[in-house]
Design a binder for these strands. Structure first.
Lengths: 230, 230
DNA sequence: TTCAATTATTTTGTATACAGAATGCAGAAG
DNA sequence: CTTCTGCATTCTGTATACAAAATAATTGAA
């Protein structure tokens, strides 16, 4: 009796449910990663039978994942001819970065207004861990933390729509940034900029933060634009 | 010989291909409209069998459309429990409008720089047609042209990513705006603001245009916020 | 009567099957 | 040798079928 009562009454609205069907997300994430990491190169036609067999799933859930990624803009749907991995032109990349700058600047300003101290401290923490990766020259971990910091700053603005569109563009750019290997000197300056960003955020100096973010993303474009062929 | 030469050589890269398979887009558009127009109310669970039968298609393409709309943010996917029409909280709506303002202001500034005269003229044309609808009190046509003008201004900025994210938020807000019936006096002021917007654009006065867009979207929030219950 | 447990039904998730379109190839005509 | 046409194959688009999970209904017990 005690037990049953507990089970029905004591449960929170959303229990610690084990994600029963994560297969769908699994396919989605797997495909996305394959595109980002270049395993599926831009311009590649996605053969449903082949890829499905490779992932060990039938075409049905695979096609659903493809439709999802198409809406994300990573894949292009051509009627009766399937899906191809979207290939971004230099202008498109530049435009994405342009929008990203606008969004992050706005997020930064808002963050200066509404962020909690603990939230800012968490960003500082991420930054410290990123510095650590920089010192040990761990590029991949650095890269991930770098993205994480930008996402975290956007999150501080406490605006779901802002976070959504930012994540969307960030995802589309991931593959490009993955390629854009900057040299040591540029890497150092990028780290320095990050340090400035955090400082401005801690001082809640919105204008300064926005300016730094602007410069930071301009440099991101500089770093990346050379690696774009067609 | 002449004919064959013409056929093979004179053809443009992308011929006037009849869209053979528009069914997919048809389902997508139909579903989207059903959500926007409230035929599928927010919070409604989408029964695949039911809706599929209603639309006259099987569950397979329907599910694909649902996944697409889920990525657009109009539908929420709950594992093993299907899809529900996304219900936006007042804060979420406010946040969306906040981002929309940032995006449109940015677009406006860019448009002042890079827009062609003919492009601006086309916006003016849309505006004139909208005025016409206003005079004959044709709300639906007015509404559509209103959206079209905002989209057109964004398009003038010539930035695909910007247009993408703008369209995304615009779509999410469509249903809300569809509800937000403003009274005659507010309607008049909205029209006046539009007139100012076009004038600023024609003068390529970026700051003024941005200011007007800001006010315009603040008012959009004012108009809409009362209609939001939960 | 009320609550819990078990069963029945519905509904989602995935796989398979089939029809139609697109691609590739081979042979015939020029 | 080139080009066009017809055929075969491959691949996409859609429908159907089946398994597992979730929801509803029913029965039994306190």
């Amino acid at each position: 009796m005690d037990e049953s009562k507990l089970r029905t009454a004591g449960l929170p609205d959303t229990p610690n449910r084990i994600e029963r069907h994560s297969l769908h997300d699994a396919i989605l994430t797997r495909l996305r990663d394959m595109i980002i990491e270049g395993e599926l190169a831009p311009g590649t036609r996605i053969n449903e039978g082949q890829v499905g067999a490779f992932l060990g799933v039938s075409r049905t859930p695979l096609r659903e994942a493809i439709k999802f990624l198409a809406s994300e803009g990573l894949i292009e749907l051509i009627p009766s001819r399937g899906a191809v991995v979207k290939k971004f032109t230099p202008k498109e990349v530049r435009d994405m970065i342009d929008v990203l700058r606008t969004l992050e600047q706005h997020a930064g300003r808002r963050a200066c207004e509404v962020a909690t101290e603990t939230g800012i401290a968490q960003v500082r923490d991420l930054h410290d861990r990123m510095l650590d990766c920089y010192r040990r020259r761990d590029r991949l971990a650095y890269y991930k933390l770098n993205q994480g910091i930008h996402t975290a700053i956007v999150a501080l603005a406490d605006n779901a729509a802002l976070a959504d569109v930012h994540a969307l563009l960030q995802t589309r750019l991931k593959r490009i940034r993955f390629i854009g290997h900057e040299g040591p000197e540029k890497w150092a300056s990028a780290v320095a900029e990050h340090e400035e960003m955090i400082a401005a955020l801690e001082a809640r100096d919105a204008d300064r933060l926005a300016a730094i973010i602007g410069r930071h993303l301009d440099q991101a474009w500089e770093r990346v634009k050379h690696a774009l062929a067609d």
